[in-house]
Design a protein around this nucleic acid. Structure first.
Lengths: 193, 193
DNA sequence: GCAGGCGCTGACCGATCGGTCAGGATACTC
DNA sequence: GAGTATCCTGACCGATCGGTCAGCGCCTGC
């Protein structure tokens, strides 16, 4: 067995707790999920959970962090490409794939976002989402156009998220993915300058 | 002053509590809103709230009941008209107006629905929504078509609901209303038989 | 005057919340 | 073997949760 330099098991437990917590937060909400429930589901004691993550909010932050990180990268790529190119085709695919990859995190931020506005990671995520919206909104002066964009993005996000999070897999991910890309592209395309 | 036959003040207090509770449930979530907070906001004691509504869930039920009632009527009108007429134009307007009238209730059901699936009134509402979806879905065999419908309805609902519920009024309700009707109609029309 | 119902309240209940703390168990270093 | 750091735990804390209950003041009917 190869050498494990430092902190092997710790990362495993941390990742395990993050995953379980993410799923339970998505299913029952942040306020509706207690540390005791998370600990029971993971097979640890509540104290042990608080040993790895100093507080409930810290665990919540750690669970959502990867999604927010990637959302930030997505925002950067948008800004970069929108200045060099006036077409928006590629962004739709990236957006849908981002949602697909972080379904649970998206579910939490979308459904509990404004309830948890005092939590740091949620505020960050909502700020990023706002900036993404603004990036797309550039050149869309009329409310009608903005609402069209809103329906496209929010509709796609909500459709993906609406299925109960306990049902892990959508019937046919590839099919859903393509259908979403199609309809969102159709809604967004006429908005190009 | 005209005669008030029975229970005048009681209805006022009940309606007042329902309204305050509806707003607070929408803002902070069901689990995130305590009876004490509702009582404080209404200027009563927690005991008094529990006097009018026997339990927290009972108050929640009473707050959401009117919206669910009207949603049920909407479902009936859909079924009735869809069998007599093959056009879907009028339903979009009715749907948007229903959302506009019960914004807070829609916000709660949409954002906290699957979290509160064990509460009666929420289950009722979600059942109605499912049946409305099925009514529209008739004749839409492919997942692509269903997703298109889902994006339209969910997108419209979420856009209307996405603004923080504390911000009571949208900038221009009429404008938003027309824009939503337009885009939803556009998405739904090609789905007609 | 008085009996009784109604609206409302504070005191109180057990349960659960997030979080602290001292210490047990294991394993690695010297 | 002694010392030490890591992982984990049960006991415990104050606060808050939803809910119960006896009793308050007040109005009404008799």
């Amino acid at each position: 067995m190869p050498i494990q330099p430092i902190a092997r098991v710790q990362n495993d437990v941390g990742a395990e707790l993050r995953g379980i917590a993410l799923q339970m937060f998505a299913e029952n909400g942040y306020a509706g999920t207690s540390l005791q429930q998370i600990a029971d589901a993971a097979g640890y004691s509540k104290s042990s959970v608080l040993y790895h993550f100093g507080s409930k909010e810290s665990l919540f932050d750690a669970a959502l962090r990867p999604a927010v990180e990637q959302l930030s990268l997505f925002l950067d790529s948008i800004v970069e490409k929108l200045t060099a190119d006036d077409r928006r085709d590629g962004f739709v695919t990236e957006f849908i794939d981002l949602l697909l990859e972080h379904r649970l995190a998206a579910h939490i931020i979308i459904n509990q976002g404004q309830t948890l506005s005092d939590i740091v990671v949620v505020d960050e995520a909502r700020g990023l989402i706002d900036r993404i919206g603004e990036s797309f909104m550039v050149g869309l002066p009329t409310p009608a156009q903005r609402i069209r964009l809103g329906v496209a993005l929010a509709g796609a996000a909500y459709v993906m998220v609406a299925s109960r999070p306990s049902v892990a897999e959508i019937e046919d991910v590839a099919e859903v993915r393509e259908a979403l890309i199609d309809v969102v592209t159709e809604l967004i395309t006429p908005l190009s300058r």
